[in-house]
Write a protein that binds this DNA or RNA. Structure first.
Lengths: 125, 125
DNA sequence: CTGCATCCCAAACGATACTG
DNA sequence: CAGTATCGTTTGGGATGCAG
C-alpha cells in the first residue's frame, strides 16, 4: 500500500477530498436529500426554501451555487416577469444521492441510540 | 405527506439532522474512512495523525471526541508509560461506514468530470 | 419571486507551546 | 506518545434590506 513516503495518503486537493469538503457544509446534504426525496429531483427556489426549515435565502442560494459548480445540479430559468427558477439534479448529482440517503436512513434507524448518547451530558469522565 | 403546516419538514434537532451536522465538519468523514479502509477499524493516535495529511493534533483529538460522543468509536487506553491509545469503530460506527465509502468512491469515479468543473473559472456566466 | 449586497457574529480551524 | 491550553485567523452562516 505504501509507496514513497511511509504514511502519506491523499493529496490535499484530490477529487474525493473536494467532494467531502463540499458535503462538509451545513446544508448541502439536506438540499440534496430534499430535492431528491421530496421533489423528485427538481424544485423551484421558494419551494426549497420552505422545505428546509431554518435555512436562509442567502445560504440556500450559496449552497445551490456550489452544487451547481460541482455539477450536482443545473439551474433553469423558466420565467422572468415574475422570476421562476428551477433547480434540477444532474445525472452526476443523481448518482451521488445514494450516500446521502444512506446516511439519512442510518440516522433514522439509530435515532434511539443516538438520542440516548446525545442526552448523556458527559460521555467521557 | 404534509400534516399540520404546509411545508414543514424535519425538526431542527432530529437524529438525521444531528448526524448530518456531525459530518458537516472538515475531518469526520476522512477519519472514518481512514480508520475503516486503511486500518481495519482500529488505529492509534499517531498512526491516524500520519494517515491524515494536513490534520493537526488538535483537530484530530477534537474530531475523535465528537465521534466518540456520537457512539461511532470507542477509546481504549493500552499503556501509560508511554501512552498508547487505540480508537476502534463500534458496531454503530461500522454500520455508517457505507455512506462515506460511497461518497468517497463517487469522488474517485467521477474525478475527471469533477476536475474539469473545478478548473472552469466562472461556471456561471 | 429570485437574487445580491452588506453587516456582523459565532464557530471552525490551525499553529504553537506546554504537561504527564 | 497522547493530550490540553491558548491564541489568532478565517470562514461559515444568519439577518436585513434593496433591486430586477
Amino acid at each position: 500500500m505504501d509507496k514513497g513516503s511511509p504514511e502519506a495518503e491523499w493529496r490535499e486537493d484530490c477529487a474525493p477530498r473536494r467532494v467531502l469538503a463540499l458535503f462538509a457544509t451545513k446544508w448541502t446534504s439536506m438540499v440534496l436529500h430534499t430535492l431528491h426525496a421530496r421533489h423528485q429531483g427538481a424544485a423551484r427556489t421558494g419551494v426549497l426554501l420552505r422545505s428546509l426549515p431554518g435555512i436562509s435565502k442567502k445560504m440556500l442560494t450559496q449552497t445551490l451555487r456550489e452544487m451547481e459548480a460541482s455539477g450536482l445540479l443545473t439551474r433553469h430559468v423558466q420565467g422572468s416577469v415574475p422570476p421562476a427558477v428551477e433547480y434540477r439534479l444532474t445525472a452526476l448529482g443523481r448518482r451521488c444521492v445514494a450516500p446521502v440517503e444512506l446516511l439519512y436512513a442510518w440516522g433514522r434507524e439509530n435515532a434511539d441510540a443516538l438520542d440516548q448518547l446525545a442526552r448523556r451530558p458527559t460521555a467521557r469522565r
